[in-house]
Nucleic acid binder design. Structure first.
Lengths: 154, 154
DNA sequence: AATATGATATCAGGGCTCTGATAATGCGCA
DNA sequence: TGCGCATTATCAGAGCCCTGATATCATATT
């Protein structure tokens, strides 16, 4: 503490803030730090982490609706709607009404969106190797299974 | 997809959304799902995940300043400031000026804040065991080390 | 055919998180 | 003494994420 020299906080990596802290707390911090890294990497492309995820999904599932994307990302339709709105404003995606279902708006990448996504993927996926640094394949498998189980609601 | 039967998305846990997806993506989803669980658990106490974290730190480091708490949580002072503002509004913490340093505001739990925190901790730490379900101690150590390394900026 | 149900989209509002900018305080050094 | 630097707090603005409520459209039920 800067203001109370009698209660010195441990540095990250020490005490309960380190590997013996609460697992939920560690998970939160790790995801937070990783998200900050991704956003720093993408900031000059004018993309946020959430926008990048949406573009990746849109590339994999073209002509998806907002509700489709929300389901894929485990987000609410309202949240996805604001992300899409920002991508629309930036001209990275476009919408057109569904040919049959009058209410549905299909969303697609624009050429500019594809270009931006391509540049972003090269950078972000470069972080992936850093995430694996120092891990054996067995360890990687353990971690992957644990994370996937959590994400699937286990 | 509900609107395009020709492009069926995998369920969570299948395909690239499962354990063979991108590690950064898995990390994000896992932390997201866990945060939702914590907030569902705490909603009737009127606490968010961020507020709970702040209260835990305040209990461990009494009379910390907003800047201190921000450092502990790896958040910006501005972010911590809004969290504190909401805790103040709810009467769970109180502030008083530092005895020597005129600018610093020291923050402390109120009795109501302590009571609320105590109830919340019992619930949240109960989730911890679920996070460990099916893991050997070796596996747990691997996961802990990986998360802590990431959070520490490795 | 009329109604009920479910899916989609959107409005409103609140909390979390960031960046950028501003102001006040305390400390070190010329 | 006085100036500059670091720290603290705060204002402003933007994006993400949630809950709750509403309106539109499609389909299934009666």
């Amino acid at each position: 503490m800067r203001n109370s020299p009698d209660a010195v906080p441990p540095a990250p990596g020490e005490g309960r803030r380190g590997a013996d802290g609460h697992l939920g707390y560690l998970l939160r911090q790790a995801a937070h730090v990783h998200r900050l890294r991704v956003e720093a990497l993408l900031s000059d492309l004018g993309l946020t982490s959430a926008q990048f995820s949406a573009l990746v999904m849109l590339e994999a599932y073209p002509a998806a609706s907002g509700a489709d994307l929300a389901r894929l990302a485990l987000l609410t339709p309202q949240t996805m709607s604001t992300i899409i709105a920002n991508l629309l404003k930036a001209g990275l995606v476009a919408r057109r009404p569904h040919a049959v279902h009058g209410r549905i708006q299909q969303i697609a990448l624009t050429p500019e969106g594809e270009a931006r996504l391509s540049a972003a993927k090269a950078r972000v996926y470069g972080l992936e190797s850093g995430l694996l640094a120092g891990l054996s394949t067995d360890e990687e498998t353990i971690i992957r299974r644990w994370l996937a189980g959590l994400a699937a609601g286990a």
